[in-house]
Design a protein around this nucleic acid. Structure first.
Lengths: 187, 187
DNA sequence: GTCTATAATTCGATAGAC
DNA sequence: GTCTATCGAATTATAGAC
């Protein structure tokens, strides 16, 4: 049995489901994203979603897989770490709706909140920890940075507070970078 | 017809419904808070909720009425404005679950998001605007302050990032006050 | 003012034909 | 691998008895 005969079409279907799922989860959170709507977007039958992912919960788990792709910061000057980080997060947030899906869903769904905690501790932690002065303060400093990054995303992409949604990347970086810098390095 | 004969019992019921509604909206956002569960919490029949508030949407609108009760800041030294503001928000957030209800619901419900925008522009704006140096920058500065306050609430009360959820009020104030101070007054 | 009964939808999930 | 048909449960909302 060749690859084309067996897996080709189903792989495309799987990908279409996942893409549609991310879009729906990002637009309305966990509860409002229905399997029926996701299937309709993907141009397939709702039963296929169940066949491929078993349940809505498992579909979300698959759709909420995410890599922040944080750059290695060991090479950049410490006084520019805030700028680099804020700019990277802006671009990452706007290039992949999965983050908005996680944020919207995380507000009402415990599994999504847990995934969010994982991402920000497991991915942000290791990259920023070496920069902090006192090892004991690392978790707090990472969480503070996360709070400002998440607050920006919430205000800009979810609640859409006009003044902050209209800022350019450069302006956001100019305002937020010093905050990140202080949370990470001060004292 | 006396007051006791007509409105007394119904007023108590109205209040019980509203209180139960805030609790449910705060715990699970808009979609997961069901009229049936709210009625059960209030110890009355689900039909009563409809009778008093007409629809789930109008119930939420009533439950999401909120006053930040921001203090007059014209008297306090400018260099302590950040501290006063952060401490007030912490206490307000922890003494009234309505804010958490708004935050959770605002992530997936447009009416809740709109109410959130109203609160932060109509209530925070007037109090902080007189402190800002350049009138043209007022909306942006208010929105930046909001982003950090909302990010704190999201991380601490909704996503429950352990390191930031465990901080004392004093520690949160010490970390965040300088940020607020800079967003409001710098330059 | 309160509750029973139920209408009208909508959802996640399953069974089974092809 | 895909779809039809449908179940069972849950939801908001309404009608009407008492």
């Amino acid at each position: 049995m060749t690859d084309t005969a067996r897996g080709r079409r189903s792989d495309a279907t799987r990908a279409a489901i996942l893409s549609a799922a991310r879009e729906r989860f990002a637009a309305g959170g966990y509860e409002r994203a229905t399997i029926r709507a996701i299937a309709a977007d993907a141009g397939i039958d709702p039963a296929m979603v169940m066949r491929y992912y078993g349940s809505k919960e498992r579909l979300f788990a698959a759709a909420a897989e995410f890599d922040l792709r944080l750059p290695d910061l060991s090479g950049v000057p410490v006084e520019t770490v805030g700028q680099v980080l804020v700019r990277h997060m802006l671009e990452r947030w706007e290039s992949d709706e999965t983050l908005t899906a996680l944020l919207r869903a995380g507000a009402t769904n415990e599994a999504a909140a847990e995934r969010m905690r994982e991402i920000f501790s497991a991915q942000v932690g290791p990259v920023l920890a070496p920069l902090c002065p006192d090892p004991a303060q690392v978790p707090v400093r990472i969480a503070l940075v996360s709070s400002q990054v998440l607050g920006l995303a919430l205000a800009r992409y979810v609640l859409r507070l006009a003044p902050i949604a209209q800022l350019s990347h450069d302006e956001v970086v100019a305002w937020l970078a010093p905050t990140i810098q202080r949370y990470l390095l001060d004292r």
